[in-house]
Amino acid sequence: MLKRVVLFLATNMAVLALLSIVMSLFGINAQSMSGLLVMAALFGFGGSMISLLSSKWVAKRAAGLHVIEQPRSDVERWLVDTVARQAQAAGIGMPEVAIYDAPEINAFATGANRNNALVAVSTGLLRSMDHDEAEAVLAHEVSHVANGDMVTMALLQGVLNTFVIVLARLVGRVVDGFLSGDREGGGGLAYYAIVFVLEMVFGLFASMIAMWFSRHREFRADAGGAALAGRQKMVAALRRLSLNQGQNTLPKQVAAFGISGAIGHGLRRLLLSHPPLEERIQALEAGSVDGEAALRQGLLA
């Protein structure tokens, strides 16, 4: 996670340099509050929207997906038919269905909207799960699509990015002004160094918020999967996933999308994209999240 934050900040600095040139051409003053908000929104939402719009393209190439256009086997035909049935029940367009080569039990969904999505499963899942368990995993992924989780996550990330950029610069001006004795503050090398450090700190807290939402959406997708495939099938699928808990060979570009999450305790747990499988199973068995309601909310979104 620290490496991801550092990469985010390095990209931030590079893009800000480009944005400063563009904004100067259009006469936007980044030192003013309005200029700062414009700059922050351009960068904060620009990156997350580009990631969202390119998510399918990136996933296909990063994970080496085989998209099923014409089923070549009974397994591929079953996958396509099952996703088609679940998509119709969830009220979304037919997603692309794909398989990727990986030893662990895993699957993921991505896409810019509910009618232009992608659902992919690993070869390890096809080898290790029976039809009922695999059906539940597919239902979980279809529920992610129906709930609009990819779009919501991108919007949330855009808002968080914007706040990080704005707060880092506002606080940076105050700190730089206090240290330099200049009431205005900002503009010097010390200011940019302070902003860099503040972006790391605020970026870490922003990541915690984003990961909290990511964990919440997993509970909703489990409940939606139970509504589409059956509660016992969904519970059985999560129990099967516990056999390879912590294993995730997906490329970093799509690793957070996988149904099989990482393991963490203490403060590390705050940066996990998935809740522990034991908690997900308990939530399903207790019925603490209404799967039908989650799907209806997705349909109305």
Score class of each variant (00 low, 15 high):
1 M>G: 13
4 R>P: 03
6 V>K: 05
9 L>M: 07
13 M>R: 06
25 L>D: 03
26 F>G: 02
26 F>T: 10
28 I>Y: 03
28 I>G: 00
29 N>I: 07
30 A>G: 06
37 L>I: 15
39 M>Y: 07
40 A>R: 04
40 A>Y: 04
40 A>S: 14
40 A>V: 04
44 G>H: 05
48 S>V: 09
49 M>G: 06
53 L>P: 01
57 W>I: 11
59 A>G: 00
60 K>D: 11
62 A>E: 00
62 A>T: 07
62 A>I: 02
63 A>R: 02
64 G>F: 01
67 V>H: 09
73 S>I: 14
73 S>F: 14
79 L>Y: 13
79 L>R: 12
85 R>C: 11
88 Q>L: 14
89 A>H: 01
93 G>I: 04
99 I>R: 11
99 I>N: 09
101 D>N: 13
102 A>T: 08
102 A>R: 12
103 P>E: 01
110 T>H: 11
111 G>M: 10
111 G>P: 08
112 A>M: 12
114 R>H: 13
117 A>F: 12
119 V>W: 05
119 V>F: 14
122 S>P: 01
122 S>N: 00
124 G>R: 02
124 G>S: 01
125 L>C: 01
125 L>T: 10
126 L>M: 15
141 E>T: 13
146 A>N: 10
147 N>K: 12
151 V>C: 14
151 V>Q: 15
153 M>I: 06
153 M>Y: 02
154 A>M: 13
155 L>R: 05
156 L>A: 07
157 Q>D: 04
158 G>P: 01
160 L>Y: 04
161 N>P: 01
163 F>A: 09
165 I>Q: 00
165 I>L: 07
166 V>Q: 03
168 A>F: 07
179 L>A: 14
182 D>W: 13
182 D>H: 12
182 D>P: 11
183 R>N: 13
183 R>S: 15
185 G>K: 04
189 L>K: 12
194 I>V: 09
197 V>I: 15
197 V>E: 10
200 M>F: 13
203 G>F: 01
203 G>K: 01
204 L>Y: 13
207 S>K: 10
208 M>L: 13
210 A>K: 11
216 H>E: 14
217 R>T: 15
217 R>W: 05
221 A>Q: 06
222 D>H: 05
223 A>C: 01
225 G>T: 02
229 A>E: 03
231 R>I: 00
232 Q>N: 09
239 R>G: 02
240 R>N: 02
253 Q>L: 13
254 V>A: 10
254 V>S: 11
255 A>N: 14
256 A>D: 14
257 F>N: 03
258 G>Y: 04
260 S>Y: 06
261 G>I: 02
262 A>S: 14
262 A>L: 12
270 L>S: 12
270 L>C: 12
271 L>Q: 11
273 S>C: 06
274 H>D: 00
276 P>M: 08
278 E>T: 07
279 E>F: 05
281 I>P: 05
282 Q>C: 03
283 A>Y: 10
283 A>F: 12
284 L>H: 11
284 L>N: 05
288 S>V: 10
291 G>R: 06
293 A>D: 08
296 R>C: 15
300 L>C: 13
301 A>V: 11
